[in-house]
Simulated assay, not measured.
Amino acid sequence: MARWQPDAPGRLAAAALDLFEEQGYENTTVIEIAEHAGLTKSTFFRYFPDKREVLFGGGTVAGLLVEGIASAPPESGPLDSVAEALDALGRTFFTADRREFSGRRQAVLNATTELREREALKRIELTASMIEALNRRGVPSLTSRVAAQLGSLAWEMAYDQWIDTDNSEGFGPLARQALADVCAAGVVH
């Protein structure tokens, strides 16, 4: 692959995933990832601080969540705003062409303690981003926290279903259904 080709971050992520699958996360170096992508080590570090981050998309997902909440209609309540953000992820990030990559990525994460820990920290950061976005909409702090936590749980449930190659449904509808299921489960009779 030539160095001048576009999407260096995507190429690096694809190369890292291939190598992590082939030789394991622990046995793969940044230099190997860069070479496999047809790039240099300095290009790798222009986009990612370390090999752990190459599978986590930088701040793209957080930005999409914040933007989705901010662009929800003014009359939307907190959960509807979170649902809008999850829909935005489905339209722009968790698209059909990323499903296979995402499933492979999740298998690598599941097999590596260090990556599972990083994923857990990323989810905490994403939940915090949703809380801040809801607070900027004027949602009270406690309500923002609850809505963001419910949204995070719905996202996890939907993502697990979405990466299943037997499932052809889009992420947005899965996330909305998961959010409805999570809210229904919270109702005490």
Results as ranks from 00 to 15, higher is better:
124 I>K: 14
117 E>I: 15
128 A>G: 13
28 T>M: 08
23 Q>L: 04
118 R>T: 09
120 A>C: 02
136 R>M: 08
122 K>P: 00
24 G>M: 08
105 R>I: 04
90 G>R: 11
100 E>C: 01
17 L>D: 00
138 G>K: 01
31 I>W: 08
69 I>P: 03
63 G>H: 02
139 V>G: 12
37 A>V: 07
76 S>L: 03
119 E>C: 03
138 G>Y: 01
74 P>G: 00
103 G>K: 05
72 A>G: 07
60 T>D: 05
87 D>H: 14
8 A>P: 07
135 N>I: 07
128 A>Q: 13
65 L>E: 07
83 A>N: 08
86 L>A: 09
116 R>S: 10
71 S>L: 06
73 P>C: 01
108 V>M: 04
121 L>S: 14
133 A>E: 12
140 P>G: 14
80 D>K: 12
73 P>N: 03
105 R>N: 12
59 G>Q: 13
16 A>M: 07
103 G>V: 09
10 G>P: 03
50 D>W: 03
68 G>K: 05
78 P>E: 09
59 G>R: 13
81 S>M: 10
118 R>W: 11
131 I>A: 10
74 P>C: 00
68 G>F: 04
53 E>P: 00
103 G>N: 08
60 T>I: 15
22 E>D: 15
88 A>I: 00
71 S>G: 06
8 A>D: 05
41 K>C: 06
8 A>G: 06
90 G>T: 10
91 R>V: 04
81 S>Y: 00
101 F>Q: 08
50 D>H: 09
110 N>D: 15
83 A>S: 14
53 E>Q: 12
12 L>Q: 03
54 V>C: 02
96 A>P: 08
70 A>T: 06
69 I>Q: 06
91 R>P: 03
75 E>L: 04
80 D>E: 15
124 I>D: 15
43 T>Q: 13
115 L>H: 12
